[in-house]
Nucleic acid binder design. Structure first.
Length: 337
DNA sequence: AAGGGCCCCTGAAAGC
DNA sequence: TGCTTTCAGGGGCCCT
């Protein structure tokens, strides 16, 4: 299930293969994927354009197109797509925006290459490129979307598209300079919701999905049902570092393959072996040996260590009244002053 | 604002 | 063995 590290891995592998190349033809096999455009409208807008670069925001992939004026320039080496555009100053001509949802793939294939039947059956959009290769959107679950926006590429432009409200509302990238400890602290303080569902909220932080939310909380030793605004500064700090650490490590390992995920060249990710909580129900916690538990939060399976990730309040059922009262008073006085 | 439920959709796994 | 049911999951959307 592609989350940010998987989508970033797809971005890198796809960019290295398609950046700078012209789209010769488009085949839309399932019209619903390009809605609200019709297959004809979608093909007409995209055909003949050049893929200047492949970008990413959260879990969205963005193919930036230019008019096919200048030759594609450098064939985007290992450095990725962003370095492109130094030579040719072609005009921006719109963007193809792809969300893989949970089972989507973006594969670079030779033109006409026949894949296994299951993949052929669920190939929904094919971009035929110059140079005898094609970029295929394959989705076993049919949840994904391929959208087109003209020029704009700003939040307002995305917000106007019926399928891109989420992109328009994305929060900061976890590895970007916008995502700071202070930002996280302030954001958490404003919310009373449980921390796990909040981490899945793409407008809060972009790119975390079920796997990395669980892993981040596990690493930070925070129970998934803790209220966001009740986390202590130490815990917020730990969470901040856990999120950045996990995401960076997962990208370095080219993502996590549980079932179907592969990158733009069909390779699996290697991070699954390093997961310590997600999918490890009943297995021993790597820190304390307690069996990992699974609960459901906001409709998502959630994995955690009940000993390392405690829920305060659940166990101090018989607190000595005197002490509690005194502590409260003291705290109140401090706050008032 | 929070949270529950539903929906999209298919394949795998579990149940019978 | 084979058929049927359940579940998983990203994220939008509606309702309370």
């Amino acid at each position: 299930m592609p989350e940010m590290p998987e989508v970033e891995t797809v971005r890198r592998t796809v960019a290295a293969r398609v950046a700078g190349r012209r789209i010769e033809a488009v085949e839309v096999r399932r019209p619903k994927f390009v809605e609200p455009l019709t297959p004809e409208e979608f093909a007409q807008r995209v055909t003949g354009r050049r893929i200047a670069e492949v970008d990413r925001r959260g879990k969205y992939l963005i193919l930036r197109l230019t008019e096919d004026g200048a030759p594609g320039g450098a064939r985007a080496g290992s450095g990725g797509a962003k370095a492109n555009g130094a030579g040719a100053k072609a005009k921006p001509a719109g963007e193809i925006i792809i969300h893989l949802k949970m089972a989507g793939r973006l594969l670079v294939c030779r033109t006409g290459e026949v894949l296994e039947p299951k993949l052929e059956k669920h190939t929904h959009v094919v971009f035929r490129l110059e140079g005898d290769e094609e970029l295929r959107h394959i989705d076993l679950r049919h949840f994904g979307r391929v959208s087109y926006v003209a020029g704009a590429r700003d939040r307002a432009g995305y917000a106007a598209h019926p399928k891109l409200k989420g992109l328009a509302a994305l929060g900061p990238e976890p590895l970007s300079p916008d995502f700071t400890y202070e930002h996280l602290k302030a954001g958490l303080a404003r919310r009373k919701t449980k921390i796990k569902p909040l981490l899945l909220d793409q407008s809060f932080v972009a790119g975390l999905g079920n796997i990395y939310a669980d892993e981040s909380l596990y690493r930070a030793r925070i129970h998934p049902e803790r209220r966001a605004n009740e986390l202590k500064p130490r815990e917020v700090r730990a969470l901040f570092e856990a999120i950045q650490g996990i995401i960076a490590e997962a990208i370095a390992h080219r993502g996590t393959t549980i079932a179907t995920y592969v990158d733009g060249e069909g390779r699996r990710g290697e991070f699954a072996a390093m997961l310590l909580a997600y999918g490890r129900t009943g297995e021993k916690c790597s820190r304390c040996g307690t069996p990992i538990e699974r609960i459901v939060l906001g409709g998502r399976s959630t994995h955690f260590c009940p000993k390392c990730q405690k829920l305060p309040g659940a166990k101090r059922r018989v607190a000595p009244r005197k002490k509690v009262a005194r502590t409260t008073v003291r705290r109140d006085q401090k706050v008032v002053q």
